[in-house]
Amino acid sequence: MSDLKYTKEHEWLRIEGDVGTCGITDYAQDQLGDVVFVEVPEKGLSVEQNGDIAVVESVKAASEIYAPVAGEVVEGNAALADTPDLVNSDPLGAGWFFKIRIADASQLDGLMDEAAYKEYVESLG
């Protein structure tokens, strides 16, 4: 699990070579509640770091998902169109949002590792 990085917006990024798979954390899905709609990006979309890249809607509210790093979208998770609840049931697995080709690996240094993210979540109370 050492290849997992996290953002303060509660996204995770699993890095394999120059491609990162991104989703939202268990904490985030718990805060959102039942997810009823996810809009994932199209393949080929180029985004800046922290740019809008996806949308997740629970029964309660809509939330934007921001790109943890700059890059080009390799794939969006098509399964979320019909089964958005995968985000609740398996947030770090089948509930992934998109895969992105990482443009600048140095941006990864600004993300949190698992221990730092755990501490961050605890600090939120």
Binding site: G33, D34, V36, S58, V59, K60
Partner: peptide, 12 residues
Amino acid sequence: PVQYPAGILSEH
């Protein structure tokens, strides 16, 4: 209370 542990979908 906005929701209980069951969650909004299941409560609904």
